[in-house]
């Protein structure tokens, strides 16, 4: 059994938007600090479990056009989420599988084939100084990750110390039925509220009976959607209150904004509904031009869905306790 040296990875090209992320910066929203974290928590957790990391280890989030990375050590890696055509020294690299990238190899990404965001985990996790308890990058406030910004050419990424038995993980896969399929048109389940009384019944029918398209004005903070207009009932002014990831804000132009990981903690637009937690990983894989249909769901059902999703994953890939404990 070989003990691996901590990973050292040279960034040859940064890619379009590659950031260090974990499961989010909680406990500081009351100070206006965004949660941020991986947009697709399911793919992040799977990537970490495949390489034997605890769920909250830091990973890379790759957006549409991935980076080019030179591995300076033998490194145990898993790539999950979107299929961004990964190759290692010109050969197709498997995804949703724990693999060994040999020292001196280059990992390259090509055209996006399905989904928008891929996740790269390395055994031992990516090293970064935790800020307010998280390694997640929030670019807007230049917080966390690698100096608060996306990767760029010349950066060097360092891995944490992995367990001696990590190489035993190589070849571990997520069974195919559990691997999500990413389509250009998705159904996302929503829970009505909290500002249901700001909207007419007709607006809810419009929201659930139409397709909404992800516009190019979309990023980690939120997706601006285009589709049939949603109008508030009256002209009652709305007082800013707490937001949530997945919330559908309705600004005065009636075009919904779907709030995502880097959302502001409070917002001044009423929220007609919120996408359920179990469907947020699918929302994270949408790119401009993709279409959404919203389907009503109850809170109790949404919570059952999430528990089922997690129980299925735990049965195939149980969580690993913290490396330091």
């Amino acid at each position: 059994m070989t003990e691996l040296q901590p990973a050292e990875i040279l960034v040859v090209k940064g890619g379009w938007l590659t950031t260090v992320q974990d499961l989010g910066r909680y406990g500081h929203q009351h100070d206006g600090v965004s949660v941020s974290g991986a947009m697709d928590s399911f793919s992040t957790i799977v990537a970490n479990r495949l390489v034997g990391n605890p769920d909250q280890a830091a990973v890379l989030e790759l957006t549409l056009k991935g980076p080019e990375l030179q591995f300076q050590q033998d490194t145990v890696v898993a790539i999950t989420g979107a299929d961004l055509s990964p190759t290692i020294d010109g050969h197709n690299a498997p995804t949703w599988e724990c693999i060994l990238i040999p020292r001196g190899s280059r990992l390259h990404f090509g055209l996006p084939r399905a989904g928008a965001r891929a996740y790269l985990a390395i055994a031992g996790g990516f090293k970064a100084l935790p800020v307010m308890g998280s390694r997640s990058t929030h670019w807007e406030s230049e917080t966390g990750g690698l100096r608060g910004r996306p990767l760029k050419q010349g950066d060097v990424l360092v891995g944490g110390k992995s367990e001696p038995l990590t190489t035993q993980q190589i070849g571990t896969t997520l069974p195919a039925p559990l691997c999500p399929r990413y389509e250009r048109s998705v159904a996302l389940r929503i829970i009505l509220g909290p500002q249901g009384d700001f909207f007419l019944k007709k607006s809810i029918t419009t929201l659930t009976g139409s397709f909404y398209t992800v516009s190019p004005q979309s990023n980690r903070m939120g997706y601006r959607l285009t589709g049939p207009k949603i109008s508030p009932k009256g002209s009652t002014p709305f007082i800013s209150d707490g937001t949530a990831t997945g919330a559908l804000q309705i600004p005065p132009d009636g075009q919904p904004i779907l709030l995502m990981a880097d959302r502001q903690t409070t917002g001044g637009y009423p929220k007609i509904a919120v996408v359920v937690s179990a469907d947020l990983p699918l929302a994270a894989q949408l790119a401009p031009g993709d279409r959404i249909r919203f389907v009503l769901c109850t809170v109790a059902h949404a919570q059952r869905l999430l528990r089922m999703q997690r129980a299925q994953l735990d049965a195939e890939l149980p969580p690993r306790k913290s490396l330091t404990s």
Partner: peptide, 15 residues
Amino acid sequence: LPLGDAALTIEFGNE
């Protein structure tokens, strides 16, 4: 008020 399945908003007034 429900704010999705992972948050609740407790509202004390509207001004």
